[in-house]
Amino acid sequence: MRIGELATRAGVSVRALRYYEEQNLLASERSPSGQRHYPDSAVDRVQLIQQLYAAGLPSKSIADLLPCVVNGEATPELIDRLSAERDRIDSRIGDLVGARDRLGAVIAAATANWRTGQHCRLK
């Protein structure tokens, strides 16, 4: 499939696909006229790349991990690295939950004050 079709099927921009190629995360074959062509399996690969980016991994880490993840070759080093990334995400989730809870308390206090006629105006 051509780059536009892959972008549509994977739900990403053509620009993102070109970036993935620049980062050696995705490969294409070129037609005689220079157009990029991808196998059907590229859709799953792009979605995996997107998930790894969403998890906060930088492109260098994704490039290192991707062959092992795709081929299912779990080495102790890969497991350690993935576990460390998961722990980092868990920590971030904890921070976000704490921030959400504090914001909820502020909203509750502001609502109670508003109901009693104590208004604070934003500047």
Rank of each mutant, 00 (worst) to 15 (best):
A63I: 06
V12G: 02
S91I: 08
A99L: 15
R92F: 05
S28I: 02
Q50K: 15
V43L: 06
N24G: 13
H119L: 11
G72H: 08
S31T: 15
A99R: 15
G4A: 15
V12T: 11
A105T: 09
D80G: 09
Y53L: 15
S33K: 10
Q35H: 15
D40K: 11
V106G: 05
N113F: 09
Q51C: 12
A74I: 11
D87E: 09
L52P: 01
P39N: 11
A109N: 12
R92S: 03
S41M: 07
H119M: 08
Q47T: 13
Q50E: 14
S41E: 11
R45N: 02
G117I: 04
A105C: 13
S59V: 08
V70E: 15
L66E: 03
M1I: 02
R88H: 05
L17W: 03
A54R: 10
L57S: 00
G4H: 11
E29L: 13
L66Q: 01
C120P: 06
L103V: 07
L52V: 03
C120K: 11
D101F: 03
V43G: 03
E5I: 10
H119Y: 12
V97H: 14
L52W: 04
R15T: 09
L48A: 03
I93N: 04
A7H: 04
R121L: 11
V106D: 10
I49L: 07
N113T: 07
S13K: 14
I93Y: 00
V70R: 14
A27F: 07
H119I: 09
A16F: 09
H37N: 12
D95Y: 06
R15V: 04
V70Q: 12
L26F: 03
S13H: 05
N71F: 11
R115I: 06
A7M: 05
V43Y: 03
L82A: 03
A7R: 07
P32F: 01
I107R: 15
Q51M: 08
G117N: 04
Q50W: 09
L82E: 01
Y19Q: 10
L65F: 10
P39S: 06
Q50Y: 11
D87I: 05
L103P: 01
S28F: 01
D101I: 04
A105N: 15
V14W: 06
Y20F: 01
R121Q: 12
P58K: 13
R15N: 00
A109M: 14
R45S: 01
D95S: 07
Q23E: 12
S33N: 12
D80E: 14
L122Q: 13
A110Y: 07
E85M: 04
V12A: 11
V106K: 12
L52I: 01
Y20R: 03
L65K: 06
Q47F: 03
V43I: 13
W114I: 06
A63G: 07
C120R: 15
G94H: 08
P32N: 09
R9G: 00
S61D: 12
L6H: 02
A16Y: 07
L57R: 00
S61Q: 14
E5Q: 13
R15A: 07
H37P: 00
R86H: 00
R115W: 12
